[in-house]
Amino acid sequence: MIRVEKLTKKFGKVNAVAGVTFSVKEGEAFAFLGPNGSGKTTTMKTIVGLNVPSDGSVMVGGLDVRRFPRETRRLISYLPQRVIFPERQTAREVLHFYAGIRKAPRQRADEVMEEFRFSQIAERPVGEFSGGMIQRLGLAVASLADAPVLLLDEPTANLDPHGVKRFREFVLRQKERGKTILFSTHLLPEAEQLADRVGIFVGGELVSEESVDHLRLAFQASRTIEDMYLRYVGSGENE
């Protein structure tokens, strides 16, 4: 469903992403792990077409994101790392606006409002929302279109434990529905619980791609998932 080949993204002289290659199969959940500034967000933003690759290619659903921006973005629902909505708009207005943009019926916006527990606060301006509520509204927007691919950049960063639990349930539901999910996280148990495979980014490179089953085997062999992550990150940071 997603195929990234030799992706390089430079900002001036800085190589934010250097020759990254990976693919995510349809219905698979893939987690990006890695320290801050390792290239996870840049890679995600390039997949959704927000960043223009310096080199390499990104295909979504068999289409090149640069040649078919509208078509590929129709396949993707993206939640940015730090989602922001206009402060003076209400939750209902936000959801109706994005439903219009995604050509989803208004009824769908009302369903999503119910599903994400915004019905009671639908007329409140977003400026009065907490960070967790805004993140939840972001997830609600991302689920409006029922797109086959979900790109979620550190989706649990602002959520409280309840919110994290609900997010994990949401992702598991989407997995059951056959969605392709690519998400980044700093929470290793989250990756272990939700992802089929993980990719570890260090210094703009994808230094490892492991299946979660393989990680679990490593875990059983008395090495923790944290140890494995730190081994890769540590070796990458030393280079």
Partner: peptide
């Protein structure tokens, strides 16, 4: 953040 969300739409 709001620009990113808007520009990520089809």
């Amino acid at each position: 953040g709001s620009m990113e969300l808007l520009f990520s739409q089809p």
